[in-house]
Amino acid sequence: MTRAPADTRPPLPLHERLVKYLGLALMIVGGLFPLAWILLTSLKDEGELQKFPVQYLPATPDWGNYARVFSEQPFARFFLNSLIVSGVSTVLCVVVAALAAYALSRLRVRYRGLLTVLVVVFSMFPVVSLLVPLFRIMRGVDLLNSYPALILPYTALSLPVAILTLIAFFSSIPRDLESAAMVDGCSRVGALWRVVVPLSTPGMVTAALLVFVNSWNEFLLALSFNTARDMRTVAVGVTLYQGEFSFPWPLISAAIVVGVVPIVALIVFFQRRFVAGLTAGGVKA
């Protein structure tokens, strides 16, 4: 690496540093405030909530809202459902995507360009347009109110992103390494398993993170296919605490806080992988 270390550059003049840190402060506060606000709301009681001007901090944190999240709805079950659906979708999607991406980036495939374009086209399918036919298929094979009713669509919807991400990673692994292994007596599949798979672990992790977040967040299909209370997912579950004209915000806030814990944890622990994956391009918003 010939890049000069950052500290050899002269320090920024004062006014530029000021603009930079003001901007960073704004960005950090702006990005985190909504979540901080919902956290504070989740610890207030109704009396503290119904004040204007707003009372920012609860006098004493009211943890009772968290207990009520689990007693008024089977939220633990929603959470388990989301974990199972997102977890299985992630594994299934990454495995299928890895196979396809390997073929598209490494093997001599006829119409390779066309197939890659097709993957991009699939990534743009509007979910709402698939709602009715998918609902019929699921009803036809008696899969409504089941995990596969969501796992299959979630796998399909994230497959393009996973394939495109993995193509980018596979392409960055030198072919020579693979050829060397094959010269040394490895079969193509052996070379794949011993050389390509270990080297592309970061790519697999990135793809897995993207699929998991997509699946955890999906709302429309989960709302429409799994209507039995015990089969609801977290994204739908947080909307079940409101009545037609009543919005118990501390309770809804507590449910949201619990519901985003996995997402926040993944972002904090895998910040680098997310940035690497998303900056590689070709990822759907």
């Binding site: 960073l24 960005m27 950090i28 702006g30 990005g31 985190l32 909504p34 979540l35 606000w37 919902i38 709301t41 977040v213 955890w216 967040n217 709302f219 977290v234 994204a235 739908v236 947080v238 909307t239 919005f247 915000w249 809804i252 806030s253 949201i256 519901g259 985003v260 997402i263 926040v264 993944l266 972002i267 904090v268 910040q271 997310f274 940035v275 998303l278 918003a285």
Partner: peptide, 24 residues
């Protein structure tokens, strides 16, 4: 921290984002 603050809105479930902002 800046990068976490940048990633978080992207990763938030849209439904929950809608609810949080409706409350704000």
């Amino acid at each position: 921290v800046a990068r976490v603050a940048m990633l978080l809105p992207w990763a938030m479930p849209p439904v929950m984002t809608g609810l949080i902002f409706a409350w704000m």
